[in-house]
Design a protein around this nucleic acid. Structure first.
Length: 157
DNA sequence: GCCAACGTTGGC
DNA sequence: GCCAACGTTGGC
């Protein structure tokens, strides 16, 4: 058995909130719209079914972790890249060689909001990639001890 | 709306 | 392969 892996995935609540995820069929959504190579490579090369996901609300009044989810599929082509009507359309991508892939993400449970402020104030989370100055990556790896600390903080307060 | 950070593009 | 211009992210 490979050791468990953990990720933090940003979603704008206007596009897909934790409640949208909980109301989706099978509590599962395709993680469409990633147009950054590093984030794509995480999904394509590193993610495994069952990996833990911190579901993070970004670009909103209260940014922070809003729930726990898990990786529910291996990577497959993002259909929105072929749709000229989609904001995620990519004219340079082909069906023979799709540029953009994504995984499915399934809700484990909604949690209280662990705010960005609280995350920044937690000594045990200081090393998180997502908290690094200037970080813009929508998918970042989470270390096992960071994952445990987030779960512990979610239980408190 | 501002702006810092940083990824992408394209000319050379 | 360099690098300036440009676009995007995302907190504030």
């Amino acid at each position: 058995m490979p050791s468990p892996q953990y990720w933090l995935m940003k979603s704008e609540p206007d596009e897909c909130s934790i409640d949208d995820l909980s109301h989706a069929p099978g509590h599962t959504v395709p993680w469409t719209g990633v147009r950054n190579y590093q984030a794509r490579n995480f999904m394509r090369d590193a993610m495994r079914i069952g990996d833990g996901v911190l579901f993070y609300h970004s670009s909103c009044p209260e940014p922070g972790i809003a729930g726990i989810a898990e990786v529910a599929s291996t990577a497959y082509p993002d259909a929105t890249q072929f749709n000229p009507d989609s904001t995620y359309f990519d004219a340079k991508s082909t069906r023979e060689s799709p540029r953009w892939l994504h995984v499915d993400v399934k809700l484990v449970r909604k949690t209280r909001l662990l705010s960005l402020k609280e995350m920044r104030e937690a000594p045990g989370l200081a090393s998180m990639v997502v908290l690094r100055p200037g970080n813009r990556l929508s998918i970042t790896p989470v270390a096992p001890d960071e994952w445990r600390e987030v779960l512990r903080l979610l239980e408190s307060a």
